[in-house]
Design a protein around this nucleic acid. Sequence first.
DNA 1: AAGTGTTTGTGAATTATTTCACAATGGCAG
DNA 2: CTGCCATTGTGAAATAATTCACAAACACTT
Lengths: 203, 203
Amino acid sequence: MIPRKTIYRLSIYLRCLARLRENSIGTVSSEALAKAAGVKPTQLRKDLAYFGTFGTRGLGYDVNELLQKISEELGTSSLQPVILVGVGNLGLALLSYRGFEKEGFEIIAAFDTDPDRKRDKKISQPIFGMHDMPKFIREKNVKMAILSVPPAVAQNVVNTLVDTGIAGILNFAPIVLAVPEDVMVNNVNLAIELENLSYFIQG
Amino acid sequence: MIPRKTIYRLSIYLRCLARLRENSIGTVSSEALAKAAGVKPTQLRKDLAYFGTFGTRGLGYDVNELLQKISEELGTSSLQPVILVGVGNLGLALLSYRGFEKEGFEIIAAFDTDPDRKRDKKISQPIFGMHDMPKFIREKNVKMAILSVPPAVAQNVVNTLVDTGIAGILNFAPIVLAVPEDVMVNNVNLAIELENLSYFIQG
DNA sequence: AAGTGTTTGTGAATTATTTCACAATGGCAG
DNA sequence: CTGCCATTGTGAAATAATTCACAAACACTT
Ligand SMILES: NC(=O)c1ccc[n+]([C@@H]2O[C@H](COP(=O)([O-])OP(=O)(O)OC[C@H]3O[C@@H](n4cnc5c(N)ncnc54)[C@H](O)[C@@H]3O)[C@@H](O)[C@H]2O)c1
Ligand SMILES: NC(=O)c1ccc[n+]([C@@H]2O[C@H](COP(=O)([O-])OP(=O)(O)OC[C@H]3O[C@@H](n4cnc5c(N)ncnc54)[C@H](O)[C@@H]3O)[C@@H](O)[C@H]2O)c1
């Protein structure tokens, strides 16, 4: 069982390796890669050891090979379809962001109670009403959703998502969502991040 | 020394307590509050024990008192000024968000290389050029910044921020920032969050 | 082909965090 | 005022994560 935190770091290593490849760097030592990722070399090596041994002693890691192996381990090799619910200020920013595709994700559609008012914007994804959501999720076999609706309705929307087969939710609403234990929620709570910063820069 | 993770959870408790207060609930047991926060009761009690004892055995915690105490501990009692750098899609969404004030933060100004093109939007904060930033930070004694600039320029902007006295950065650019160790960076990397979800819903 | 210098991989040690288990406490009913 | 009951606070135990320390492996030089 690979620790949760290791999985997070694998994602970071992946991005550092991608940059190295862009710069035509063929091999990298655990020391150099760890530095780029902001961790200690031993931690990097331990993280990799959870699922294989890829390095050459005395030399380091082959950038392409390691990229490939981490990618496989994370299952990022194939493009994952994602939907977004709640096309407000934040939802629109996310929809117009072109950075997800090259990381292996694609927001294929958005849903909102009021889809028509949003439609005039310069975004490429279709925006549907909430009524169309269950059918869409089932037909396209979507497993992940980004939730950017007001907190007051978030639990309600989540219940629908879960009933319809969504297994992973990236939640921006500042509330704790109740979900069955086979559904995973990652919360992004910006107020808490700020509060956290504020605490540590004072104390 | 209070664990880092405890501090995160204190912020969550705070929000749960705020909701209880809105619903005119005066006391709460560790069991009920823990459930609302999505943690185990013993963990909640241990978290509180790090900085005091506030409960009444047989009864639970006084909602108002606990709210007050956690707030003090986190230093959220006073409003913290924050600046935002990079008024693009994401930056605009953050600027227009009215939810930070009631959590103790206020984005008092924004900065961008191209401030004039953004000025027509319906946001209340002033947008200045990058040239004005150092002076502003020093004069207003701002300690925290939200960074939503393109990744290619992020390190550069951070260097300026750090030189000017910023001690806490909430970073949305998908790169690892290098900062002196007395500066704290909290990263919000949405691609990594998605990748993480994707891993755990499959494996 | 041997020697040298680097860097990996990994058990063991350390440190951090969570959970357990239960004695101590105070509210409340009678 | 006494005893019961619910609930806290907390050492101790368990679990998880990080760091250390070093032998093993390989590249590279001569
Ligand atoms: N905007 C930010 O910068 C920011 C920052 C932190 C947190 N958040 C959180 O993110 C969420 C979205 O924020 P926002 O600023 O975009 O809000 P918003 O009000 O601009 O957008 C919310 C959208 O959800 C839609 N909606 C409402 N009820 C719905 C329902 N039942 N089903 C589907 N859609 C529904 C609305 O039509 C609207 O388009 C909120 O929970 C907010 O607290 C936002
Ligand atoms: N938009 C999203 O949903 C989203 C999602 C995940 C990550 N991000 C990340 O957040 C950051 C911002 O994303 P965005 O979509 O808002 O990008 P954007 O291109 O819309 O906005 C970037 C803004 O930064 C300004 N800028 C450029 N160089 C600058 C400099 N040197 N100093 C100050 N300002 C400068 C630009 O003028 C522009 O207004 C990026 O790093 C992006 O990768 C965005």
